[in-house]
Amino acid sequence: MSDHREIELMAELVPTGSRVLDLGCGTGELLALLRDRRQCAGYGIEIADANVLACMQRGVNVIQLNLEEGLAIFEDQSFDVVLQLDTLQNLRNTEKMLLETARVGRTGIVSFPNFAHWPNRLRVLGGRMPVTKVLPYEWYDTPNIRVGTYADFEVLARKHGLRILDSFGIQDGRMVRGWPNLLAGTAVFKFSR
């Protein structure tokens, strides 16, 4: 989630004054934006030393934790919004983390690369794994160990009884509401328990 326009799009999904938890918060850009423009308070979770330092330099609260170990440190429904942007696909326990997100936050917002975006489909049809702007890695070195699509997430959410409050795709920094599973490189879901 480095693209600044995508971060602005995400910030608009968060109600003013929310208490926010950002899982895999990177350098804390979104948290700083939410603090400065939307009067939000909260914390970021990061594992990488360089990102933890960057968050501290921005003056946003950051907790250095490995998300694979779960969110036991956080109580049920203790945040208005839990964000998990461009992180879910890097975790082994994707399903558990999604449930943890729903447990800790009254609302969850996730984004992840949509493997069903049409250039990816073409590439797979041609017999190769996709390598694109959103998915710049080769199959053997990708940190994206969970490969899913916009449509797959709807199925997973239904399986766990999660209520989808809003969903759309993002392509070239713009919201995609029509045929997102085909036309968007990034999938976004806002949901609650």
Binding site: Y43, D49, C55, M56, N61, I63, Q64, L65, I73, S78
Partner: peptide
């Protein structure tokens, strides 16, 4: 240290936590 962090989070206090390897 995480016990301390948890107590701070429970009270909605500002906290940052670094675990230096």
């Amino acid at each position: 240290s995480r016990e301390i962090v948890k107590a701070l989070l429970d009270n909605r206090l500002d906290v940052s936590y670094a675990e230096i390897d």
